[in-house]
Design a protein around this nucleic acid. Sequence first.
RNA 1: CGGGGCGUAGCGCAGUCUGGUAGCGCACCACACUGGGGGUGUGGUGGUCGUAGGUUCAAAUCCUGCCGUCCCGACCA
Length: 573
Amino acid sequence: MRASKYNIVTLKETPADAEIISHQLLIRAGFIRKAASGIYSWMPLGLRVLQKVEAIIREEMNRTGAMEVLMPVVQPAELWQESGRWDQYDEELLKFTDRHQRDFCFGPTHEEVITDLARNELKSHRQLPANFYQIQTKFRDETRPRFGVLRAREFVMKDAYSFHLNQQSLEETYQSMHDAYGTILDRMQLDFRPVLADTGSIGGSASMEFHVLADSGEDRIAFSTSSDYAANIELAEAIAPPKDESAPEELNEIATPEVHTIEQVAAFLSVPPESTVKTLIVKGENEPLVALVLRGDHKLNPLKAEKLVGVAAPLSMAEDGEISSAIGCAPGSIGPVNLGLPIIVDRSAAALANFVCGANKDGFHLTNANWARDTTEFSVSDIRDALEGDPSPDGKGVLQFKRGIEVGHIFQLGKEYSTPMNATVLDENGKSIIMTMGCYGMGVSRLVGAVIEQKHDDSGIIWPTNIAPFQVIIIPINAHKSEAVTETSEKLYSELTELGIEVLLDDREGYRPGAKFADSELIGIPHRLVVGDRGLDKGVIEYTERKSSDSKDLPLEGLVENLHRQIRIELNI
RNA sequence: CGGGGCGUAGCGCAGUCUGGUAGCGCACCACACUGGGGGUGUGGUGGUCGUAGGUUCAAAUCCUGCCGUCCCGACCA
């Protein structure tokens, strides 16, 4: 490609509304342009990258035996009403009506459409397992799009849906998707972690997210310093410290006027917050109220709590009025001793001895409280947020936190959609069986941003060769004056192109070398050849690798072959 | 959805407080010079100052409503 005939519009200045580096560089390098909040056009250079990411994903999906399809972006309301998500998805679902006043939505995901397809197409167990995928534009009307392509409203996603006769078959496909995701991210040379995840509103049982590690990531993940254990922070299991076996001391009630928060209690009684407990009152599932007890320095994890039997989901805190009429005191003086409510104690709080807690009497706290001696029945569960430095749940190492960009999410859906939509096949015995499903998403346009977050420097983007918009850039110096430069550049260009290498020849007139160098670095082309009289006189070309910034003079003789070999290695072909 | 910032040329901004001829840099067009790290000069193109209303002899500037956009939070397969 000749740069003079290609749309290359780079900006020297950073756009004011771009906050993070991938967004800034995508705009400055001319890869994307914004049409509206969270809605972008992909320009020629950007589209080349996007399509290369798609190609890698497509290759690896095909390798697993998945079948590519293309489903509609515009979906009829009926399907969403059938699954129950027309109302549940709420505002994020972009709804509209056609000229006949029929309701439609712009697809944010395709479980409904694929399940409808599957129940019509798949009739026999012999057609299973089947895994369909597509690479499609989705629309989610996010309350707050941000970070450019990392959190756009309109975005490109690969989504796959598998159908099975039983759980075991699902688990096999789930594992092959897990492996394929690893391969895809490895091929883009990303530093990533598969982490245990919550299934969220899509439903189902097992689920893993794939996170590209980056400080700009919106998600926090916890992982072990010495094993493979990794989990979304809201899901990471919190391990209790060893039980405090101290002998119980005498229980004391102490007046603590105007002392409510843990900080105040700890300061007033001169004890560390770790020796206190806090008691939170939430709405119960069967009983009106339930008490949750945590160590003073720990934070309640609502996701864990609302999953417990007896606790109402979604988690909702009790009103002050309900608390005072049930317990007889205000929040801030509640404790597990003589409480008269069902009590769920966090593992770490349960390991305490001689702790401080509220006395269930305004203005009073108890010291030296002990579970076995001073409280009635209670259950122990993991209901707190894990903390950095906690022991890893698998017993190896301690937890460390990092930020990640979620680029993939795989779910074992089970019969979440196949049941309401009645997607069945006949088994070996001619019996109708509801299919078991899995779904596997990967953010294609988000991956483009995620790569940049990990691969950039002060000058611009550093693309891995297999997703770079071009693999080689040739910059002639003073081409208008030197026939040798022009001839050599053209020769290199045609020879490399002939070999199937994607070359950008920067033949733009009126650009000084410095501007071309700067553009080549901003755009992030992995290999650069500078052709100038200075080198040609010695029979050499200046070669610069984008990744290392290393420059060296290479003999013109054999240059094309050597570069070709190098690129083949990088492309792994 | 709550809180805050910002809307002036394609991009980055000044001008708004204190009303009076709409500006600067980059980009773009033409010509000349220049030619190994974002050149120089000359001459140009391009703006209903987000929008609607109000105040005023006069509004980018003051007032009110609306819209857009970005940030923080809530939310988020």
